[in-house]
Design a protein around this nucleic acid. Sequence first.
DNA 1: CCGGATATATCCACATCGGATACAACGACA
DNA 2: TGTCGTTGTATCCGATGTGGATATATCCGG
Lengths: 115, 115
Amino acid sequence: MPDRNPPLTPAGFQVLLALAGGAAHGYAVMRFVETLSDGTVRLGPGTLYRTLQRLVADGLVVEVANESEDPHDARRRYYELTPLGRSAAVQEASLLQRMVSAAEDAGLLGRRKTA
Amino acid sequence: MPDRNPPLTPAGFQVLLALAGGAAHGYAVMRFVETLSDGTVRLGPGTLYRTLQRLVADGLVVEVANESEDPHDARRRYYELTPLGRSAAVQEASLLQRMVSAAEDAGLLGRRKTA
DNA sequence: CCGGATATATCCACATCGGATACAACGACA
DNA sequence: TGTCGTTGTATCCGATGTGGATATATCCGG
């Protein structure tokens, strides 16, 4: 099992995290990221769609047919994680988890049940 | 309470986190980051020292006299967090914590005592 | 049918990053 | 004492990622 071939960018992780809950289209990803961070993190169209393209090219994400119920908005393009994409997201999330733990150890955050 | 004036870069947070445990010199910060991430995150001299300079310029970090015991290595330059720097680190760590929680909710990570 | 929000896509200027390079000082060792 | 590998800091440059503006097209409400 080789390392993550192309290293994951910050924006890349945001997108993977947004898609971890299921398939979604670009604009929804944008709103997810903004909502999750209370507006402090924003992607902007440039970063968002370029990042999606790169993730697809790297095999972390695939475009899927809009299998939703009624045929609402024809413009939307839906994406979902590949197994590879999911594992990349897990790996990055673990890393963040370790950094959060370190922050707790340093007294930066209220500690969340260490045991 | 104004927003973080200059937004914190990823490398910037790594450095702040390393300094959260107390004053340290650049090379030690480099090793701290590498150790914490099991070698997956590296700063490299370029990013490291440039980042330190920027953090100092932004008032998040100050250089301090080497108050350590014996006068060992004259080359080392020690830095520590300012109150502003600490609060920026707290803010960023909280954001990461929220992203980790989202990752847990999405089933990416083993859940750590939700209740 | 008209205007604003939704939705995607591309372009360009700017910031950041990573590695190479350089150089000085420390420590070990013969 | 001299030499060599490691520690430690600093700068430069090419490559990469980001953010915002711009451009369209579609959806929905009045």
